[in-house]
Design a protein around this nucleic acid. Structure first.
Length: 896
RNA sequence: GGGCGCGUAGCUCAGGGGUCAGAGCGCUUCCUUGACACGGAAGAGGUCCGAGGUUCAAGUCCUCGCGCGCCCACCA
């Protein structure tokens, strides 16, 4: 209350930059963002999807975090103890790519630097950039509990990661083994299946003859990768393929290397593809590997870890890269006369998600996490709605993947990250332990070395909802804030992150990590293309904040969350929202003007009498209910649209204009509702505006706080104002009806005047209504005059039978309007207008009549529909009659 | 190969069986009236992607196409 007495300077144009900066600092220093366990309150928790330390804030963050902050602020106002957990991810491979790029500028690689120096450099770099993105997030006005900021390589977090690994290892869920994995020859590491991105490319399918060992013609196979011929171990055909049945069991000669291999039969061969015969290269193709295992074929390796050719008895190939090797193989095949055919072919090439290098299927010793058993409880949890996706279609998307889940390669041959907590003894024993064990429990040896590999970044981020709250310790935070409430994230990490959090949460806590998952749309530019810095197709959120304010950026983005998978965005949308903010600002200035220096209560107004006051309270209740409902069902664009409509159309366009009349009339001593009208109106206008600010605060935190503070209010911040409720009894149907009439008459007068180009001329207008309506309309006369921009003296209300000395009539509801002008030209123009309307009414009436005369319609359509159609028909007939009469009345007089 | 989403006014999107199809922006005309020209008022503008079907009634439901986007998949 004390705050309201202060005179707050409200300039003509709202200045977002200064206001946002000032309020954000105030909220932060007053500790409003802190969240501590409080048994008296229900917790509400959102974990920020941890941004990489590589990046800067982009539009995706602005949207994602904007939505989260909207939810957090909303729940905080609803009385929940709201925790918004911030932090950053070490982003192992992504950081490697960035660091290697920096090193490359000095002609270095991580290997010339060595592991220790590389880590030192990376830590330095991360210190420098690590807080940048969080700093930028403050510009979005996020109400995070910054004191809890966590980095995924903090000591406590690292301990949680190691603990998780060790538990799963001891349980046998994590195992080590030689398997075929995806290898990135550039980053020098394995990557998981989800980190391979497949791109369609135009290649060539080579048909190659493998001559029979007995000198016969042999067999023709088809391959895209002739360079791997050197490592072939067999040729396979389908057992039921009559073309090749006789050849199964014989031996053929591998071209180039002239090695004998068997022709084998396997059902996994597609008869219809290529020639129906396929070369088997267990070292470089996942399917071939499987077939090789089943047929006990030898595994030959054609490429080393750098993607360079090994020596396979053909020295001229040694050291060639994959492109050179292919060329060499094609040349050799051609000169040997074994290249039968080359056909153009489109295929999917797997590329490293981070560096875009073509990945190589490669056999290596790696750590894996068995997924089937972890997935089962997660599948059940989602099926039982313990985790709900919004929009719901993502549920199927999630389940389809989970049901065909495969083991996860979790080890990386990188340095930046969590090193695997396993110690190898010379005797072959592996000991999982956070600390280096003193000796090997099996042989007693002391020469233990830690496994050099580190863990996939996503292994550690899977623990985010638990590790940030203190897990594996049973902390008060963990007990209070876990499970969290809502996860807001992008669809591209549903498998990488969301799925794994659910699995680990269930595994280690027995509880799902969050109840709701909102999948936010992807921000595209206006042409529908991905925003990309390198392509120059992106928008910079920080620049937009500078130009228009974070409030506007937030609203503009949240407004586009429609439930579709993408959203097309442009700067214009932020500008439009800036205009909206300015509109609110000016509404506030008007309200301030009227309450300045007066004693206006902060409490909610009761027993209002004036039409606009009763009406706007009802409309506010409706808007509050709609906004609440929309937020509850994650329909953010609906919430935004309702707020926009309420503020601009209902509050500003109609209510405030009518409120001006109440206030002015009170001064003149002719208030429509008598004494006290001005006080009531001042109370209602300031209360509704303050409440609207509360309703809009989660989306536009700063401008709403600034205005709320300038109005009568209870409490010290809108951040903690109670969320507006919407009592049904405020929805005032009588007021709605009366207002609809006021609006109709207003529009009719305005429209007619505009049509006649009389909008600015002082004309007289009379409203002619029957005895039942006259009193009511006369009561609204002052409002109508103001809304139609007429002098009150020039607007009269008369009976239906009365006629002004001269005038141009126009129907309006149950009565008519007369504009007091005498001009044959205008009469003709208005007559034309009515004639046009007449045409469309006739057309519609014809349609409705036809329907009504159709016996099948009368019989089959529900009674209410038939009745409504009948009502519509009589309305149309009445309107038609009226229009015809007016057209006749307006006909040129006396034939002159 | 399979799955999902989208196709409605020039643009971005609402509407998801029934009463002349809606909003914002843009456009046209008028207006600087004491909250706001980042504003007010009035307008113009639509074979609701196409073809079939269901229904008394179809942007709205079904089927099949076409176009755009996303995801999954070991036909080399």
């Amino acid at each position: 209350m004390a705050e309201s007495a202060k005179t707050v300077e409200l300039p003509k144009t709202y200045d977002p930059a200064a206001t946002e900066e000032r309020w954000y600092r105030t909220w932060d220093t007053r500790g409003y963002f802190r969240a501590l366990p409080d048994p008296a309150m229900r917790p509400y928790t959102i974990m920020m999807p941890l941004p990489n330390v590589t990046g800067e804030l982009h539009m995706g963050h602005a949207l994602n975090n904007g939505v989260q902050d909207c939810l957090v602020r909303w729940q905080r106002m609803r009385g929940r103890m709201a925790l918004y957990q911030p932090g950053t991810d070490h982003a192992s491979i992504a950081v490697h790519v960035v660091m290697e790029r920096r090193l490359a500028r000095e002609g270095l690689t991580r290997f010339t630097l060595g592991r220790e120096r590389f880590l030192e450099e990376t830590w330095k770099w991360r210190e420098q950039i690590g807080q940048t993105i969080l700093g930028q997030m403050r510009r979005l006005l996020l109400s995070c509990d910054w004191e809890r900021t966590t980095f995924t390589m903090d000591p406590g977090y690292a301990r949680a990661v190691a603990e998780c690994f060790i538990r799963l290892f001891k349980k046998g869920v994590i195992y080590k083994g030689k398997r075929m994995i995806n290898w990135c020859p550039k980053d020098q590491t394995s990557i998981s299946d989800l980190e391979v991105e497949y791109v369609e490319e135009q290649t060539v399918l080579y048909h190659v003859r493998y001559p029979g060992a007995d000198g016969s013609a042999g067999i023709v196979i088809a391959t895209q990768r002739p360079e791997t011929i050197l490592a072939d171990a067999a040729v396979a055909v389908h057992p039921d393929d009559p073309r090749y049945r006789a050849l199964v069991g014989t031996r053929v000669i591998v071209p180039i290397v002239n090695r004998e291999v068997p022709v084998i039969a396997d059902r996994r061969v597609e008869r219809g593809f290529g020639t129906g015969a396929v070369k088997i290269t267990p070292g470089h193709d996942p399917l071939d590997y499987e077939i090789g295992v089943d047929h006990e074929l030898p595994v030959l390796i054609a490429f080393d870890q750098h993607g360079k050719m090994e020596d396979l008895g053909r020295p001229r190939y040694r050291g060639l890269d994959r492109v050179q090797a292919r060329q060499a193989a094609v040349d050799d095949l051609r000169s040997a006369g074994l290249l039968v055919r080359e056909e153009p072919y489109v295929t999917n090439i797997g590329r490293c998600d981070r560096c875009k290098t073509t990945v190589e299927p490669y056999i290596s010793d790696q750590w894996f996490c068995r997924m089937k058993d972890l997935a089962a409880p997660a599948i059940r949890a989602v099926r039982e709605d313990r985790v709900r996706f919004h929009p719901a279609r993502w549920t199927k998307f999630f389940l389809d993947w989970m049901e065909q889940i495969r083991d996860w390669n979790i080890s990386r041959q990188l340095w930046w990250g969590h090193q695997i907590p396993v110690w190898h003894c010379a005797c072959g024993e592996m000991i999982a332990s956070i600390e280096r064990p003193a000796s090997c429990p099996k042989c007693g040896g002391a020469a233990l070395t830690q496994d050099p590999d580190i863990l996939d970044t996503w292994f550690s981020s899977a623990l985010w909802p638990m590790a940030t709250l203190g897990w594996p310790d049973e902390t008060a935070d963990l007990r209070y804030f876990y499970p969290t409430s809502t996860l807001v994230t992008a669809r591209d990490i549903i498998f990488l992150w969301v799925a794994r959090m659910i699995m680990f949460g269930l595994e280690f806590r027995g509880k799902v990590p969050f109840a709701d998952v909102y999948i936010n749309p992807t921000v595209l530019n206006i042409e529908g293309r991905r925003m990309s810095k390198s392509l120059g197709t992106g928008l910079d959120p920080l620049a937009l904040i500078e130009r228009y304010g974070a409030d506007s950026l937030r609203f503009a983005l949240i407004n586009r969350c429609t439930g579709e998978q993408d959203l097309r965005f442009s700067e214009k949308m932020v500008e439009d929202t800036r205009n909206f903010a300015n509109k609110i600002w000016n509404a506030a200035r008007l309200v301030r003007l009227h309450i300045e220096g007066r004693d206006v209560p902060a409490a909610r107004p009761r027993d209002t009498r004036s039409l606009p006051n009763r009406w706007i309270l009802g409309r506010f209740a409706r808007a509050a209910a709609d906004v609440t409902g929309a937020l509850e069902s994650f329909e953010f664009s609906v919430a935004c649209r309702r707020l926009y409509e309420f503020v601009w159309n209902e509050f500003c366009d109609w209510y405030l204009e009518m409120a001006k009349v109440d206030l002015q009339a009170a001064e003149d001593g002719r208030a429509p509702i008598g004494e006290g009208a001005a006080g009531e109106t001042r109370h209602v206008m300031s209360w509704v505006l303050a409440q609207t600010m509360a309703l809009l605060h989660p989306i536009m935190p700063a401008v709403t706080e600034e205005i709320w503070q300038a109005l009568p209010h209870d409490g010290e911040t809108v951040m903690r104002a109670p969320w507006p409720d919407a009592p049904r009894e405020w929805m005032d149907e009588a007021a709605d009806g009366a207002m609809a009439e006021v609006m109709e008459i207003t529009s009719a007068v305005r429209g007619l005047r505009a049509e006649m180009a009389l909008a600015t001329q002082p004309v007289g207008v009379s409203l002619h209504f029957g005895p039942a309506d006259r009193g009511r309309i006369d009561g609204a006369r002052l409002y109508l005059a103001h809304l139609a921009h007429l002098d009150a003296d020039r607007l009269q209300v008369s009976g239906l039978d009365e006629h002004p000395p001269y005038g141009i009539p126009s129907p309006c509801g149950t009565g008519r309007i007369e504009i007091h002008v005498d001009s044959p030209d205008l009469r003709a123009r208005v007559r034309d207008r009515f004639q046009k309307q007449l045409g469309s009414v006739e057309q519609e009436l014809a349609g409705v009549t036809k329907r009504l005369q159709d016996p099948v319609f009368r019989q089959k359509a529900p009674a209410e529909t038939v009745e409504a159609t009948g009502t519509r028909a009589s309305e149309l007939r009445a309107r038609l009659d009226t229009l015809r009469r007016y057209v006749a009345d307006l006909a040129p007089r006396g034939g002159a």
